[in-house]
């Protein structure tokens, strides 16, 4: 799951020049570092909901919950557990 999400983030948010400068792993801060701005986060949320067939309430889609891929994986797993 981690690798799928990292791949999506690379394609959706990084430009070719960024890829040299930014090392991305499951602990890299996404929102607080500015890689993903809070406004553009919506496409990531949509991707996760579609891919993992879950629905993330807006109240849970906080900058903190989305700040690392590790956090995102935890969020998804919690929702998959709910289903």
């Amino acid at each position: 799951m981690e690798e799928v999400i990292l791949e999506y983030i690379r394609n959706e948010y990084l430009d070719e020049d960024d890829e040299e400068d930014i090392e991305l792993d499951s602990k890299t801060p996404l929102i607080s570092s500015g890689i993903v701005d809070s406004f553009s986060m919506v496409s990531l949320k949509r991707f996760l909901e579609k891919k993992y067939e879950i629905s993330i309430p807006d109240a849970e889609a906080s900058a903190e919950a989305f700040d690392t891929v590790a956090n995102i994986v935890r969020l998804i797993q919690r929702h998959q557990g709910d289903a």
């Binding site: 948010y13 430009d15 406004f39 553009s40 919506v42 496409s43």
Partner: peptide, 13 residues
Amino acid sequence: IRLCKAVTDTYKH
């Protein structure tokens, strides 16, 4: 955009 009900999306600069 945030004040509007439309769906939002963004593209790389």
